[in-house]
């Protein structure tokens, strides 16, 4: 009986001991997991040394991007320039930026949408390495049509960053979502998480890839390659901190809208001239 009591006592002791141990362990794990980001955040706001980019301080910039769909002519020079600038895979199905064509035919409720990756457009361009829109609606009665350039929205609350298990993708202080390819394990959670389909998987390197707003160019005072080559000024880029920059003026002087506002990602690519079917 006594022994039994002792045993019960022990079990109770053990359970309480185990409980407190678990609590302690959880606290320790939580502390080790949470503490570093917390200190990092305070360090960053306290003006820690910015990354070693010559002549560039990321705390002084907040990049933004504008698309004026009323100007886009669908020449796809941006798609080609982006691929060259960033060594994107050469075929039609891997791209960091793309252009969609929305065509409303007479009597049709919804738009017909295609991009350079559509088989008809690939056939018109002659190969997957060249990009052009085929004049496929020349005999149809078109009520309304327009082109919409698309790219990563570099969201303020990026879902892709939230789901990354390794910290390979992140948002920089100046507002650009980038990927550290040496840390990417190719799980593609981020490809799934992005509401805009802006990420693609690079089978060549087994990593995910995406638009960086040409981070290597903008940190040198240049424009992203797509903005650089756009012949009609449909793509606008600049620093939202600078009230005179093209993007600040664009946002100020136009009724801009963003794609999928309801997703809660708070995108930073601002559109003019698109209608409700563009998402």
């Amino acid at each position: 009986m006594e022994e039994n009591e002792l045993e019960q006592q022990d079990r109770r002791d053990f359970l309480s001991c185990l409980g407190s141990a678990l609590a302690c362990g959880a606290a320790a794990v939580a502390a080790s997991a949470l503490a570093p980001p917390a200190t990092a955040a305070t360090a960053a706001t306290a003006g820690a040394k910015p990354p070693a980019i010559p002549g560039y301080d990321w705390s002084k910039h907040r990049w933004g991007y504008g698309v004026d769909a009323t100007k886009c002519i669908g020449c796809l020079r941006c798609v080609e320039a982006c691929k060259k600038e960033n060594n994107v895979l050469g075929d039609a199905h891997h791209f960091r930026t793309w252009v969609e064509r929305y065509v409303y035919l007479e009597g049709e409720e919804t738009a017909r949408i295609d991009s350079h990756a559509d088989p008809v457009n690939i056939a018109a361009s002659g190969s997957e390495g060249e990009y052009r829109f085929a004049d496929r609606y020349k005999d149809a009665k078109v009520e309304k049509a327009f082109f919409v350039p698309k790219l990563c929205n570099h969201c303020t609350h990026p879902a892709c960053v939230q789901v990354c298990p390794t910290g390979a993708t992140y948002k920089t202080e100046d507002g650009v979502v980038v990927i550290d390819h040496t840390y990417c394990i190719g799980c593609q959670y981020c490809v799934q998480a992005c509401p805009y389909g802006a990420r693609y998987f690079d089978e060549r390197r087994n990593v995910t890839d995406k638009c960086t707003w040409c981070y290597h160019r903008i940190t040198k005072g240049l424009q992203p390659a797509c903005v650089e080559v756009c012949p009609v000024g449909a793509r606008i880029f600049g620093d939202l901190n600078d009230k005179q920059s093209p993007i600040s003026q664009f946002v100020k002087n136009n009724q801009v809208q963003v794609l999928r506002r309801e997703s809660g990602n708070a995108p930073n690519v601002f559109y003019v001239g698109i209608d409700k079917e563009v998402i």
Partner: peptide, 28 residues
Amino acid sequence: TADSFYEYGHYRGKSVAEIASDKPKYKG
């Protein structure tokens, strides 16, 4: 954990400068 991980957040701090170090192709 890499040296510069957590330097600015839950990522490798040095990768920022690495990404920025690419050479632009389009020269204007």
